[in-house]
């Protein structure tokens, strides 16, 4: 097996590993939910993590498995993944998203500090939920937007 196929095979294995982990988490979440029905805890969060892992794993398998069929596909997929311009664009996007993410964490830190003195409302309940949604969605949007802009301009 050449180096390209070995690299793709590792990606496929990682994908299957994530699928297995995801299914295991999903089952574990279900079993814990049934066994501890009266505990007041919602074990759906474990199942949710399982669905996320399995979904990511299926994506990996679907992306890389067809590339194992022939050498030309393997060469094309590896070239796309390791392409220096693509890597550069993704890295730049990641840096921008990280900065935005760090700003959100810093704002939350300041907010909680002020809230402890009663200067601003406490970051809790719906407010906390919306803040976390925003802090999750904005960096992802920055990441995707940065990739789209750089793909056009470079």
């Amino acid at each position: 097996m050449n180096e390209r196929k070995a690299w793709i095979t590792n990606r496929v294995r990682l994908g299957w590993g994530l699928v297995v982990l995801g299914v295991a988490l999903l089952v574990a979440g279900g079993i814990l939910g049934v066994l501890n029905a009266g505990s007041g805890w919602n074990y759906g969060v474990i199942g949710g993590l399982g669905i996320l892992a399995a979904g990511f794993g299926v994506g990996q398998v679907l992306r890389y498995r067809p590339a194992l069929r022939d050498e030309a596909s393997a060469r094309r997929v590896v070239a796309e993944e390791r392409d220096e311009r693509t890597v550069q664009i993704r890295t730049r996007a990641g840096n921008r998203a990280w900065i935005v993410s760090a700003v959100f964490v810093w704002i939350a830190l300041m907010w909680v500090s002020y809230a402890s003195n009663g200067n601003v409302p406490a970051l809790a309940g719906d407010l906390l939920w919306w803040y976390l949604v925003t802090a999750f969605a904005v960096p992802i949007t920055v990441y995707a937007g940065s990739i789209m802009l750089d793909e056009r301009s470079s």
Binding site: V78, A79, D83, E84, E151, S154
Partner: peptide, 17 residues
């Protein structure tokens, strides 16, 4: 394919971007 990059990279190189 010869230099193991994407076609888009060749396009960007040729355009000087």
């Amino acid at each position: 394919e010869r230099v193991e990059v994407s076609r888009q990279t060749i396009i960007s190189l040729e355009r000087g971007r």
